[in-house]
Amino acid sequence: MKIMCLNGWGGKLHEVMLPYLTATAPDILCLQEVIHRPSSEKDWLTYRDGDHVLPQRSNLFRDVASALPDHAAIFCPAAQGVLWDGDVSIPSQWGLATFVHRSFPIIGQVQGFVHKDYSPLRFGDHPRSRSAHGVRVWDYDADRALSVTHMHGLRDLAGKMDTPERVEQAHRLRDLSSQLSEPGDLIVICGDFNVEPDSETLSILADAGMTELVTTLGFSGTRNSHYRKPGRFADYMLINTQDAVTGFEVIYDPEVSDHCPIILEV
């Protein structure tokens, strides 16, 4: 089974990302930073937050679902706020999504918030609402259940240091994974955590029996040339049984986002 985790960057590089996802065809795709605006006729809208301006695919969720037609697609909104078509404001949902190949029965799901709650009228003040989603599937080849839970961690304008809010979100993520999983499951937790490798977030998950693979296996970061700020780590993948890992890669080429895809094979 192949599991991929990726922050999609709002689909800014969708012309590269969608063919890559089609060719790679992960069995489970955990995708963060997803826009869902099915009623919009526009392909592109614009996100504006002060001097931070970013083009957004108006329905990245639909785009990826079309690229992976053999997958069940689940969208989990964190907020509905405003994107822009020129000077016209367009209410748009923002969150994360999970795609599961239909050959793997989904036998459990969990969805919840690791920070705040659903923001129905605007994206809100930083640090903003953040959600998590998990699926439990049956792997017939391995004759076992597997749970995969992912989140998009808090973005703090001050940086990636530990904060009480980040500590709380780590506890909530751990608890959501525990709520989903059963004894004997292979457990995976992943996402764009927006923290450094020495963060308390990873310590909390390590205390829960999880091994982080990006740093353990010696990768130098999860950001690429599109990310021009200091700090090369943001995305992580953890597993409760490292012996189950048959392959693990951080993909630096092609560049499909300002984050690198992370791929785990078990």
Rank of each mutant, 00 (worst) to 15 (best):
T211C: 09
R172S: 08
E41W: 12
V137E: 03
G124S: 00
V137A: 04
A208K: 03
Y252A: 15
S203F: 07
A170S: 10
A206Y: 09
V88F: 12
F104R: 09
Q242W: 10
G8P: 01
S203W: 10
H150N: 11
G153L: 05
P120R: 00
V266W: 11
A79M: 15
I239F: 02
D243P: 09
R144P: 02
P254H: 11
Y227H: 15
A142V: 07
E33I: 02
Q242M: 13
C190Y: 01
N194W: 07
L264V: 06
L157V: 09
A206S: 14
Y236D: 00
G191K: 02
W138G: 06
G11M: 11
I3G: 04
P26H: 04
H101G: 07
K42C: 13
L176F: 05
R232A: 13
L83W: 15
R57T: 05
Y236E: 08
Y118T: 06
S129W: 07
S103T: 09
P261Y: 07
S40Y: 03
I239R: 01
K12C: 06
H126F: 15
I3F: 13
E165G: 04
V53K: 13
R155P: 03
P77Y: 08
Q111M: 10
S181C: 06
E200C: 05
D139S: 09
R232E: 07
I106W: 14
D185L: 02
P127K: 08
M210L: 14
K160H: 08
V82G: 08
R62L: 09
S119R: 13
L157H: 13
D87M: 12
F248L: 02
K229N: 12
W94C: 03
A78H: 14
L202A: 04
S40G: 08
G218M: 04
C5Q: 15
W94E: 02
V266C: 11
G10F: 14
S119E: 15
F233R: 03
R62D: 13
M17C: 12
D139W: 01
L202K: 00
W9H: 15
L29I: 02
H152I: 00
L157P: 11
T201P: 05
A206N: 11
K2S: 12
W44Y: 06
S92R: 04
S119T: 11
K229I: 01
G108K: 08
P105C: 11
L6H: 00
V135P: 02
V256S: 09
L60W: 10
L238Y: 03
V53N: 13
G159I: 10
E168I: 04
V53S: 11
L54F: 12
G86K: 00
M17R: 07
R144M: 05
G184A: 01
S181R: 00
F193P: 01
S39Y: 13
W44V: 14
Q32H: 03
T22P: 09
D51Y: 00
H101C: 10
G218S: 03
H101I: 03
Q242E: 14
K116I: 10
G134C: 04
L13T: 05
K160T: 07
F113G: 01
I263F: 09
I187Q: 14
G112Q: 06
I262V: 15
S40F: 07
V135D: 08
E200G: 07
